[in-house]
Design a protein around this nucleic acid. Structure first.
Lengths: 160, 160
DNA sequence: GCCATTGGTAAACCACCTTGACTAATTAGT
DNA sequence: ACTAATTAGTCAAGGTGGTTTACCAATGGC
């Protein structure tokens, strides 16, 4: 009994000396908050917009991209991409054209309307970055950005 | 018709001049990859561990924390926390004790087993940070960390 | 002593993604 | 040229990680 108490006390000492928020926790929470803030503003103009849509858009080239390629770039399954593209096509943001180079494939690309929505979305992001920059300093924001750009390839290489 | 073509060309010019990956995208992808990598290693020893569990742990004090407080810190609903705590209690990681100061409340705290699992989890995180540090430089990692710690409060203040 | 507030639960639902199985078109090997 | 393997995409089912609404019980301000 006394042994149990001592053992626990020892464990707690070891833990409390090392417990601190990890990069993973920080990334996760920051990502969630950032997207919440941004999407709330975008949805004020485009109510049907969703987080998952926004995450796909930067991987779609202006001259069209295959779904499989979008999936590969975004790091998610092609099935997930298919469904999201379905939704965005339904909302008039994207369209699918047959790929002249491959009878199986379709090129996903923006409609004119989609491009305008993208421009508005970018305005919102710039606005938020400006506000955040005002609070923490533009330099801090830029350092985070540069750091993440450097970190991402390393994360992708990392074997689980 | 020709007008439509010109209009689209103009839109595309404006978009392509501004399109660049945003902090939000970077955060989201980095968070997902980091958690995937870390959890895969943790699950090799503790198969029932889940991402959502890991996200809660840093908000549980060693001397016990109320679920409502955990929810507030983590930024999610108390119902979500309740379910996750249920699962971790079932796995012997946490336990619930009545709060002597409030008959409604329960203090969530670690079991001895839970503390050992936490220590192992921290080992994994340190290991990953070390590996990442080897690829991008420990300084870069530290800058990201500091930046995020600074950014988080600003994000929480930001009205959607 | 009443009543608004707070800690927690229950149940239904939703967003987002995965896995597995499949079809059809393409490319490689011989 | 003819298989055989690969690749683009779809369909369906299921799992994870939450939210919302509604509720109960204990608390505390007045």
């Amino acid at each position: 009994m006394a042994d149990d108490g001592r053992r626990r006390a020892t464990l707690i000492r070891r833990l409390s000396s090392r417990k601190q928020i990890s990069v993973g926790q920080l990334l996760f929470k920051a990502a969630r908050l950032f997207h919440e803030r941004a999407m709330a503003r975008v949805q004020a103009r485009v109510p049907e917009a969703k987080h998952a849509h926004a995450n796909l858009l930067p991987y779609i080239d202006l001259d069209g991209t295959r779904q499989t390629e979008i999936a590969r770039r975004a790091g998610i399954s092609k099935q997930a991409v298919g469904q999201l593209v379905d939704e965005m096509v339904a909302h008039g943001m994207l369209r699918r054209d047959p790929d002249p180079k491959d009878g199986r494939a379709q090129l996903v690309r923006f409609t004119d309307d989609g491009i305008e929505q993208m421009l508005h979305g970018i305005d919102v992001l710039d606005e938020i970055e400006l506000e955040l920059g005002g609070e923490v300093g533009a330099m801090t924001l830029e350092r985070i950005k540069r750091g993440l750009v450097k970190l991402l390839p390393a994360l992708e290489r990392l074997e689980p």
